[in-house]
Computed example of a mutant assay.
Amino acid sequence: MSDPQRRRVRVRRSPKIGVFLLLGAVAGALVAIVAVNVTPPDPTTPTIQTAAFLAALLAPVGALIAGAVALVLDRISERRAKIVEAERVPPTFRPAAPVPDDAAAAPAPTTGDDAAQ
């Protein structure tokens, strides 16, 4: 492996933890809405208030559980990681066309005094 263009790299698939947290929070809110609609209503509090309060409590719980699942999946993906040979490919891009100098072509800004003349 004396070629500087080739090197050994570790490749693994890892979960996006932010997506797991968001989906867990949404799942917690949905569980709250279902729980409020399944249980008999309380005449002293409005249903929407009960649902909002329960969603505010269960959304972080759902995010916490989903985050734990994501961390477990991340650890599993570390164990399944593979070491492969990668080759560096030089970038192939064309330089951008030169930008014309718009300052000379743009009209001079006018002020209120210039418009009166």
Rank of each mutant, 00 (worst) to 15 (best):
L71S: 10
I33N: 01
T50Q: 14
T44E: 14
V61F: 10
F20H: 12
V89P: 04
G67P: 03
D3S: 13
I65L: 15
F20I: 00
V9A: 15
P95R: 10
P40Q: 07
V38P: 01
A25N: 02
S77T: 11
M1N: 14
D74I: 00
I83M: 08
V9S: 11
P4A: 08
A68K: 11
G112P: 05
A68S: 13
F53T: 13
T92W: 09
V36W: 00
K16F: 05
I33D: 07
V36D: 11
G28T: 02
V34S: 04
V11C: 14
R7D: 14
A96W: 07
V89R: 10
A68D: 12
S77H: 06
A56G: 15
T110Y: 09
V31N: 05
E85C: 00
V84G: 08
A70T: 02
F93S: 10
P98H: 08
V38K: 00
S77Y: 05
D113L: 07
A116T: 12
A115L: 15
L64V: 07
I76C: 02
G24Y: 03
V26M: 10
E78R: 08
P40N: 07
L58D: 10
I76S: 09
A52N: 10
A105T: 12
Q5D: 15
P4S: 11
A108R: 15
A66T: 02
I17K: 03
A27G: 09
D102T: 05
A63L: 02
V31F: 13
P43L: 06
T44P: 00
A35Q: 05
R8S: 13
P40I: 00
T110K: 14
D113A: 13
A115C: 02
F93P: 02
A56L: 15
N37H: 06
T45C: 00
D113I: 02
A52C: 02
R12I: 04
D113Y: 07
L21S: 01
T110S: 13
D3W: 06
A105L: 14
L23K: 00
L21N: 02
G24N: 07
P90D: 12
V61S: 07
L22C: 01
T110N: 08
R12G: 13
T39D: 06
T45M: 08
V72G: 06
A81S: 14
A35R: 01
V19R: 05
G112R: 12
L64S: 14
T110E: 15
I76E: 12
V69Y: 08
D74Y: 03
A52H: 00
D74K: 04
V38Y: 01
A116D: 14
G62C: 07
A52T: 11
